[in-house]
């Protein structure tokens, strides 16, 4: 039932990390420019139309969206790495087949890919965190814990992505999860505006980005906010529990689905 994993997982991870560092320039600059653009255009531009301290926790608009941008970087970094990029490696480059012919197992290849997806989430969101801090928007030292949330949140999105990759008949298939799952989360998880009351329960139950946003916002400001009738601490604990359970389930499921796809 549980996948058998050894240190060899890191050899797969390292392969991807080495390709990444080779192209660090094209990977780094866009991840840095995007949050600057969002903070300037939405935070300062659109934010000028809102009064100060009107957002939950007495935040200004730019303060409100900052944790949203970090969380979106976590989701995009891991989800797109383990859908499009992993699919290219699996389907077009046949890299998985090549690695499976060595002492490394399928389980370890998939685990390595997923851990790499979580790493991408950590790298991308830490860049955004740095930009946010440069704008003076990281008001609590607990913000230094955000990369930890990024890694584990990234692990969830990477595992979910890997499930879709295992089921994808072609690369165009990813339009479904991208538009029907990722985009709604991008908008509705308390990223750019507070989650409307009527969908708060649904967001907590079905949109994992909500938990990532709640945790990131709490760590960035040192103040966990109540939501859907729950206290701030309860929301944070629920988030941690939700992420832990879902990550375990989808991580194991992704390996099973991938084995079914790759081993006939």
């Amino acid at each position: 039932m549980m996948p058998k994993l050894t240190y060899r997982v890191w050899k797969v991870w390292r392969r991807n990390a080495e390709v990444f560092t080779k192209t660090i320039f094209v990977n780094f600059i866009p991840s840095m420019l995007e949050p600057i653009l969002y903070l300037a255009a939405f935070g300062l531009g659109l934010g000028a139309y809102f009064g100060a301290e009107v957002f939950p926790g007495g935040a200004s608009y730019i303060q409100f969206i900052a944790p949203g941008l970090i969380s979106i970087a976590i989701m995009y970094g891991s989800f797109f790495e383990c859908t499009y990029a992993s699919f290219v490696r699996m389907y077009f480059q046949k890299s998985f087949d090549a690695i499976i012919a060595t002492p490394i197992s399928v389980d370890e290849v998939i685990a390595g890919e997923t851990l790499w997806g979580a790493t991408r989430a950590t790298i991308n969101s830490t860049i955004v965190l740095a930009v946010v801090a440069a704008f003076g928007l990281a008001s609590s030292p607990t913000a230094l814990l955000i990369p930890v949330v990024a890694f584990f949140g990234g692990l969830l999105f990477a595992s979910l992505a890997m499930c879709f990759t295992a089921l994808a008949p072609s690369i165009d298939f990813f339009n479904f999860p991208a538009f029907l799952f990722i985009t709604p989360m991008f908008i509705l998880s308390g990223t750019f505006f507070p989650i409307p009351d009527v969908i708060q329960g649904a967001a907590l139950g079905a949109l994992p980005l909500t938990h990532v946003v709640n945790l990131t916002r709490g760590l960035l400001t040192g103040n966990f906010l109540p939501l859907a009738g729950l206290s701030g601490v309860s929301v944070a604990l629920l988030g941690l529990a939700w992420l832990a359970v879902a990550t375990t389930v989808f991580f194991v499921l992704s390996i099973h689905l991938m084995k079914k796809r790759l081993i006939k």
């Binding site: 392969r15 890299s95 087949d97 090549a98 060595t102 002492p103």
Partner: peptide
């Protein structure tokens, strides 16, 4: 797998 060298039909070099 540690004792075998495999040259598959399809090109799966790492591009």
């Amino acid at each position: 797998k540690g004792l075998i060298g495999v040259c598959p039909q399809e090109d799966n070099l790492d591009p």
